[in-house]
Write a protein that binds this DNA or RNA. Structure first.
Lengths: 115, 115
DNA sequence: CGATCATATACCAATATCAGCATATGAAAG
DNA sequence: CTTTCATATGCTGATATTGGTATATGATCG
């Protein structure tokens, strides 16, 4: 037997650098397939195929707009990865770092509003 | 070309369920190869090969003890994954969830949640 | 309708991966 | 030194994956 199918497995879907790049690009908002092709340096079929894989594990969705397809990332679907990772974060230095992060976030919230 | 080599890439190393299970087992402490074989239901060569992959990306280390090899996890090497993921956590509901987590950790240290 | 643009899919060749089995290495015990 | 235990490695067959090229689908425009 070979490796478990990339489909239906977020871990495998994200294991490919190209697909991670696509997700990164989509974090700036909805993008056309052509826009992704231009942003990264990948062929159009390549991008379409990667989008298919990402779509099958729910990491991206699209809405049709005329002959365009606007893809967007669905970051919440990364949760399985996050959850698995959480066990290990705790093992290295999770507690201190997270409290530190939260403190920054809490006290940074009030400063946000004034320009 | 096929997929980028599993070696030298933490994302790919962790994409395999079997290797994740091995890491999970190793989180309980140092383990012998044979102990891992017994804990999971994998053949000894399989375990050895997975350990090799994990070792090549630094996710495990071992020390020799007689004819045994005691492997241990090196969770800090998961950091690239964590860092990449951090961008997305922020995008979904990081703020609320993490504050919630911290609150539970801070005030509920001896308690448990009632269903 | 026919032409054109945006995207998806089919097919291909090269290669990597996985699991299983057999075997090699290496240490320790008799 | 020979056997035995623990682990690693080599080889193989089946399959999956990737990127490329060509083509199909589908919508818009003239």
């Amino acid at each position: 037997m070979a490796r478990a199918s990339t489909t239906s497995d977020v871990f495998n879907a994200v294991a490919e650098a190209g697909r991670r790049e696509i997700l990164d690009v989509l974090m700036t908002g909805e993008k056309t397939v052509g826009a992704i092709v231009r942003d990264l340096s990948m062929s159009q079929p390549q991008v379409s195929k990667h989008l298919r894989v990402l779509s099958e594990v729910g990491l991206v969705r699209y809405r049709a707009d005329g002959r365009y397809r606007l893809y967007r990332a669905e970051p919440v679907r990364l949760r399985p990865l996050h959850d698995w990772l959480a066990k290990y974060e705790q093992a290295w230095n999770a507690r201190l770092d997270r409290i530190d992060d939260i403190l920054h976030e809490l006290q940074g919230q009030g400063e946000r509003s004034d320009p």
